[in-house]
Design a protein around this nucleic acid. Structure first.
Lengths: 217, 217
DNA sequence: AATTGGATTATACACTTGAATAATTGCAAA
DNA sequence: TTTGCAATTATTCAAGTGTATAATCCAATT
């Protein structure tokens, strides 16, 4: 029996590769199929190596969830950051970013749902989720505040809190719909619906910078 | 070795008991912990019996998901049916029903997320989901149409489609928020936010029949 | 060139998994 | 009371589980 050849990797690269393999396995085989052997196989290493980088399977899964949360959050966040100085555009692109890949993606939904489901079992996952949720809502609240001020509209903190909660809800809910049943919506439809909803919820009029969401007629 | 005593049950009762035990196990132990032995144990029978009622574990899980979908849908549906003849009240109570138990419930979220996650792996589950989703959205669209007409507001089918999508999104998203972080919201707050959102999305003014959601001040 | 130490593999282990089968039980009809 | 049969249990099986441990490889250091 000849021994398998291998080469060393930097610690970061290996960890990230294992996390990536974990996510792929969850998408392809579900939580049940995402076993250490399956994951190791996907990453091109042997199962034992996982224990060298992570204290256990739970630990690996937590790292994987962190990556998912960051991907979803950072995508929208970065979109907004491209429009410094224009609060209305910032709010608009932030909302719309949630309705393009990589955020809107059936695989992303599978990952998200898998981890949300585990939230009740692994408190560490619950913590990661909550942290991300709070950041997200604070970001929305901040965006709304700036947008309202830019439009010269008065609003109380209570208003903004309720608006942020509602906007977060619309985004989440429509994102769900889009991931689950992409074929039921025309191109850019969900983004436009989301933006319209945000306009009605806030009373603002928002610009559409992204040609992908422009209504064609 | 004495043999365990048992008594016969009607087929329906047994199947339902097994389904109930399945849901309990998923909530308590997650998908990984919901093994045939755990489930059988919870139901007070032996593992082998499951195979007598269901072709396999997959089959049992599909039945369990059907029950979840029905519970969530029927609760809101039945609330609306209590207000025959008053379209505005029907829409209102339908929306609000999603923010009371048993619909808003951390356990319900755990179940929902678990099955959604499996949707990508088991096409049968995907079918069950889609069926429920379509029914739900059609119901909303119908409720909105009647409410608009009762209020004497004109609306095109395209408007109603977009409104139904958005309303469905708000309900789903806020429901998620409420299940995941009940402690971050005051009593009845989410329901009020949802109703306000629906009002803004439709331009309607909706009555609050349910004292649970009346704002106290 | 020899040595060292961490990265990686291979193997082993104790246990759990879903499923299959055979043996029993309890009930209902005769 | 007996008999028949479906419902239920007990047992078994092969495959797969996460983890532990020891053997090996590679790269950098000396």
């Amino acid at each position: 029996m000849t021994r398998r050849s291998f080469h060393h990797e930097s610690e970061d690269a290996r960890r990230q590769a294992l996390v990536a393999a974990t996510l792929e396995c969850i998408v392809d085989f579900g939580l049940q199929g995402a076993t250490v052997r399956q994951i190791a196989d996907r990453a091109g290493v042997t199962a034992g190596l996982i224990r060298h980088y992570f204290a256990g399977k739970d630990n690996l899964f937590q790292a994987a969830y962190r990556e998912v949360v960051e991907t979803m959050f950072d995508t929208a966040q970065r979109s907004a950051d491209e429009h410094q100085g224009d609060p209305l555009a910032r709010l608009s692109v932030f909302v719309l970013a949630n309705f393009k890949p990589p955020v809107i993606d059936q695989r992303m939904l599978a990952l998200w749902a898998t981890f949300i489901a585990q939230t009740g079992v692994d408190p560490a996952l619950a913590g990661i989720h909550r942290e991300g949720y709070i950041s997200y809502r604070e970001t929305i609240e901040h965006l709304v505040k700036d947008a309202m001020e830019a439009a010269g509209k008065a609003s109380t903190p209570e208003d903004r809190r309720a608006q942020a909660i509602a906007i977060n809800g619309v985004i989440d809910g429509l994102w769900l719909e889009g991931c689950m049943a992409a074929d039921m919506f025309s191109d850019g439809e969900l983004g436009r619906i989301a933006l319209l909803a945000v306009e009605r919820l806030t009373g603002l009029t928002l610009p559409i910078e992204d040609p992908h969401f422009l209504k064609k007629d």
